[in-house]
């Protein structure tokens, strides 16, 4: 009996030891849209490599800053070194709704923009990116790591969203890659079965993530003076 008890005790200890060696899984991170979008931090500087239609590649650095009052609470990525009239890469902002965060990108100051990300970004999640509901966005990939062309740079926790126009050919679509805490890292434009243009890729981001303008609560809106403004309407709502 004594030996049997010793044997059972040794077996239990061995099982405990084996259990300790089992891999543990950490709790999954939130997949909310705002986590994969540009941060409302005006100290950030984004350096992008941009290709044009004739395969020329240019590199530019964009500073995040608030748009003036005439454009609501949008932030913009401005190329300060450019003297061109269109020196803004994107206007962006996000807001919280009952269905989750909505992250809006716009190419021009006069445009209405489009919903780049929305809600919880699980595989297969889709939404209409424009108000006319012609552009359908769908999450086509989620990666723990994503290596940019050249495989010199990689980002963690990346979602891939495909934007397809219902009125265009199925071979023509846009794919954007968003990395957690960074925002847009890669943009690919497919124009046919064998034609593809890498429009944009994020080379680096500089700035302090603990800056004086963190937006920890994305459902709050701040004016250009940094004051909190409640119940700010979106541009789409303002246009209505």
């Amino acid at each position: 009996m004594k030996y049997l008890a010793s044997f059972v005790l040794a077996s239990v200890l061995s099982a405990l030891l084996a259990a300790c060696s089992m891999p543990t899984t950490s709790a999954p991170l939130s997949a909310d849209a705002k986590d994969y979008f540009f941060q409302s931090n005006t100290t950030f500087q984004y350096t992008y490599s941009q290709d044009d239609t004739i395969s020329n590649s240019t590199t530019a650095t964009y500073q995040a800053k608030l748009v003036d009052n005439t454009y609501g609470s949008y932030l913009q990525l401005v190329n300060n070194q450019s003297t061109a009239t269109n020196n803004v890469l994107y206007y962006f902002k996000n807001q919280s709704t009952a269905d989750g965060s909505i992250c809006i990108l716009s190419n021009s100051v006069s445009g209405k923009g489009f919903v780049a990300l929305k809600g919880t970004l699980e595989m297969g999640a889709s939404w209409y990116a424009d108000s006319a509901q012609n552009i359908q966005a769908i999450v086509v990939g989620k990666y723990a790591e994503y290596y940019l062309p050249g495989r010199q740079l990689h980002y963690n926790d990346v979602v891939v969203v495909k934007y397809a126009d219902k009125n265009a050919s199925s071979d023509n679509y846009l794919v954007r890659y968003f990395a957690r805490d960074f925002g847009l890292i890669l943009e690919r434009k497919v124009t046919g079965p064998s034609s593809e243009i890498v429009n944009l890729q994020l080379l680096s981001r500089q700035g302090s993530s603990s800056s004086s303008n963190p937006d920890l609560q994305h459902d709050r809106w701040y004016n250009q003076n940094g004051r909190y403004t409640a119940h700010m309407k979106t541009d789409d709502e303002l246009d209505k």
Binding site: G141, K142, A144, E145, Y146, Y147, R151
Partner: peptide, 8 residues
Amino acid sequence: VSSFGVPA
């Protein structure tokens, strides 16, 4: 050199 993703 091509871009690629690594699933979790």
